[in-house]
């Protein structure tokens, strides 16, 4: 797993900090409305099923890192940007009580999972 590059590359810098500057410019910015793609899961992902297809707002552009789908196989050649996306709870769970319409959920995605709405 990722421990190989952990030891070699992250020492003294941290992981994901050790990938800074490797992904080019980020495609999305804070405030963008994005939809979570429903890509097929091949072998490994950390993208939760409950967010697929949902629309949210980019809350934070976090860092650059290889996507877990690649890193799980020790492929660290193509880091990409990561984003924390904020969803209205009612967007994730249609029967979420309307009285708590302000409630939200945030979680993080690599760029490949997002598309502009």
């Amino acid at each position: 797993m990722s421990k190989t590059h952990h030891a070699q590359k992250a020492t003294g810098k941290g992981d994901p900090q050790c990938f800074a500057g490797e992904a080019g410019p980020p495609k999305f910015k804070v405030g963008d409305q994005v939809r979570i793609k429903d890509l097929p899961d091949i072998f490994y992902t950390r993208c939760q099923v409950y967010t697929r297809g949902a629309v949210g707002e980019v809350a934070v552009v976090t860092h650059e890192s290889p996507a877990p789908e690649d890193e799980a196989w020790d492929n660290v050649d193509r880091p990409e940007w990561f984003y924390i996306v904020r969803f209205k709870q009612s967007e994730l769970w249609p029967d979420y009580p309307a009285v708590y319409a302000n409630d939200t959920l945030q979680t993080e995605f690599s760029e490949r999972w997002l598309e502009l709405v």
């Binding site: 890192s65 990561f82 708590y100 302000n102 409630d103 945030q106 979680t107 993080e108």
Partner: peptide, 14 residues
């Protein structure tokens, strides 16, 4: 009700 509960699902490297 007026307080927004914001759940942070920590699923990547943050």
């Amino acid at each position: 009700e007026n307080v927004e509960i914001r759940v942070e699902d920590s699923n990547q490297k943050c």
